[in-house]
Simulated assay, not measured.
Amino acid sequence: MAHLAALETSSVLPERKRQKLTLLKRLYDLKFKREDIISLFKFIEWMMTLPFNLEGEFWQEYRNFEESRCMQYVTSVERLGISQGINQRHSVEFET
């Protein structure tokens, strides 16, 4: 599903962000185990990359979703690492 969504949204990145979030939410809805959600989400992340601004919006929407479900599959340490990675990626984009 991630591969098909990535192909379908290659030129419509806001739709890609929406599809990416939909896929992640589906993992929760299907009651996947924590480890499975993390593994599958890593694959989804790899397939459905987003530009910096949409990546930030995606993570904010994911945090809102996660908080509404009271399920925190991504720890605060992982979120900090993700945030640092996004910041590093952002600084590299401006250098090139």
Rank of each mutant, 00 (worst) to 15 (best):
V74R: 00
M47A: 13
F41L: 05
G56P: 00
F43A: 06
E57K: 11
N53S: 14
Y62G: 00
K25Y: 06
W59K: 03
K17N: 04
N87D: 10
L23Y: 01
R79H: 05
Q88N: 09
S68I: 04
E93V: 07
L40Q: 12
K33D: 04
H3E: 14
P51L: 14
E78W: 11
P51K: 08
K33W: 15
L23R: 02
I38A: 02
E35Q: 13
A2K: 02
E8Q: 13
L54Q: 09
Q60M: 14
S83E: 10
Q88K: 14
L24G: 01
F43Q: 08
E78L: 12
G81S: 10
R26L: 05
E78M: 15
K20T: 03
L50G: 01
D29P: 00
L13T: 13
E66S: 14
K25C: 05
F58Y: 15
I44V: 10
F65N: 01
E15M: 06
F58M: 03
R69L: 11
L13C: 04
S10F: 12
S11R: 11
V92C: 06
F41C: 02
E61V: 04
V92L: 15
R79S: 04
R79G: 01
G81L: 12
A5E: 01
Q88E: 12
L40G: 02
F41S: 00
I38K: 14
K17M: 14
K25Q: 14
S83T: 09
S91T: 08
H90Q: 08
T22L: 15
M71F: 08
S91C: 06
F65G: 01
W46N: 07
I44C: 01
V74Y: 05
E35F: 09
Y73N: 09
E8M: 11
L40W: 14
R18G: 00
T96P: 03
L50P: 00
E8F: 12
G85P: 01
Q19R: 08
P14E: 02
F58P: 00
M1R: 07
I44S: 00
R89V: 07
L50H: 01
V92T: 10
Q88C: 06
E55F: 07
R79N: 05
I37Q: 00
K20G: 02
S10Y: 11
A6R: 03
E55D: 05
E15N: 03
S76E: 10
L21C: 03
R18D: 05
P51C: 12
M47W: 09
H90K: 11
T49I: 15
K33T: 09
G81K: 13
A6W: 07
E57W: 14
A5K: 06
L40S: 04
L21M: 04
